[in-house]
Amino acid sequence: MKTKMGPMAKKEELYFYLCISPWIIGFLIFIAGPIFASLFFSFCNYDVVTSPDWVGIQNYKRLFSDPLFWQSLKVTSYYSLVSVPLGIALSLIIAILLNQNIRGLAWFRTIYYMPSVISGVAVSLLWMWIFNPEFGILNFLLWKLFHIQGPAWLMSEEWVIPALIIMSLWGIGGDIVIYLAGLQGIPTELYEAAEIDGANSFNKFLNITIPMMSPVLLFTLIMGILNSFQVFTQAYVMTGGGPHYASLFYVLYIYQNAFQFFSMGYASALSWILFLIMLALTALIFKSSPLWVYYESTRER
């Protein structure tokens, strides 16, 4: 039951809304407005310049017969399916290694985190050189160390996505920092108790670290999937979607339709489908989370 507010409290509430109003107004105009506008546009034929024409569900019907829609979905899922688990595993391993009471932890943390603060375009340009089939350091090392003639990477239909997945590992520093914080929050007595019971390090990892870290893993899994479905810069800067549509990521395809082909209506429909896909995926993960995510507080009740 709501208690009646005194005049002072009312006034205070007013000030509260007044103070956050710039943000609320900004949200309504610049975020909520466009979101609903795009829903409207997705039912229109709209080229940005001339006024939108209502065409019903035509744009959505077109989606299903558009091979590039399916291609972009395939490319993005492939990337997401490999890069997200790989990124999580690798950053967790590095975080655990960094958590071993080593000297200069702050240094390592900074070094691993550093790539995450560099702009995506700069990183893309850098990696274009790394993947350069002739002068790139990657193929150079492959040849020098293993005598393997490296692939053409970004210029190869088969290797362009693996290349971009390798590149995505560059940004795991953000996750490492989160995991490190999580690891440091695990009470040491749990490990000590396990040791007394004779658990080896693998058992400790499996039965203490993983369950204790599961809320953090849930968070990074969701963020990782959401981010991987929104890959744009790399593809836009490095490959333009090629060769032969092999790196035509979903958001790149939206961008092309919206700002290069000026099919804003179709691009809006694509965006809403992406939104629904991400919503479904997130819901699925949340639904499944009670099976594998362990919250300390729920147990204590």
């Binding site: 239909e157 979607g241 090629g242 060769p243 032969h244 549509y245 092309q256």
Partner: peptide, 14 residues
């Protein structure tokens, strides 16, 4: 965009 993408396999010798 379409014809550039479609002709990629030719230049790649595929």
């Amino acid at each position: 965009f379409v014809w550039t993408s479609e002709t990629d396999p030719l230049w790649l010798g595929k």
